[in-house]
Design a protein around this nucleic acid. Structure first.
Lengths: 128, 128
DNA sequence: TAAGCATTTAAGCAACTGCTTAAATATATT
DNA sequence: AATATATTTAAGCAGTTGCTTAAATGCTTA
């Protein structure tokens, strides 16, 4: 009787077990970078948050209320996105009176720039 | 009696309603680009898929079985990620016998490159 | 054509996401 | 102090995600 074992590797011809091992090591070596980066990229992968990051880049800083107006969303909804971005280290905040101004954390601009170049261009094909 | 209306805009001093309107228009103008881009970025925002994209970039092409070995995951789990990436137009596939080779769609390399530069660098701070 | 291998598909599910509404907090104004 | 304003927090929830396991598909070779 054959028991299902999904971790059984296939016995393909092309497999280069030495190269496979090199890859395993590279992935292991950069494990933390993959975790950190995917977390930031996942934050930017939400349409609302991508817009927020774009707007903060363009306008230097904005408050939750501005963003609520621009994006036509409730303030709590915006605020929760801002919190995630802040927790992820993608944006900063500055308080002035009862207004809180958010801006992109300078250390993240390099990562985000390529996205906004794509946005700004006259719609080059994003999907092949 | 005051009814809760979260869409009520605040009456802040700093608000520049002209500038707010410009922003609204920019967002509306690029709406499709935001939708398309966020979809692709969301795909890359999953740690497993980010690794897959990285590996495909490095190795030119890999089959689900290779990736299963490298990432130490079941083949169905890998296959489901590959399908999402394929559906999103981020990767391509080529069939050779019973083996399917996946590779990054050339049109997406520009977008992905900045990620992998970060991965490859000796861990510059991803989060501030 | 039967058996084996690589891959895909599908059902089931626990965990996560992002919204809504309501209430709380913090600052400003009267 | 009382009221108003800007923001945050929290509970509740519908929808989505990503895994597991099992079964199906598709190609290859005996």
């Amino acid at each position: 009787m054959l028991i299902f074992d999904p971790m059984d590797n296939c016995t393909r011809i092309f497999a280069d077990s030495r190269q496979i091992n090199i890859c395993r090591n590279v992935v292991k070596e950069h494990q933390q970078a993959f975790t950190d980066l995917s977390q930031v990229v996942a934050l930017a992968g939400n349409e609302v948050r991508l817009k927020i990051l774009f707007l903060l880049t363009q306008e230097k800083e904005l408050c939750p209320c501005d963003l609520s107006d621009i994006l036509d969303m409730t303030i709590p909804a915006v605020s929760q996105h801002l919190r995630k971005l802040k927790d992820g280290g993608v944006i900063r905040s500055r308080k002035s009176g009862q207004t809180v101004f958010y801006s992109v954390d300078p250390s993240q601009i390099t990562l985000l720039q390529p996205f906004f170049q794509i946005i700004q261009e006259p719609l080059i094909e994003v999907r092949a």
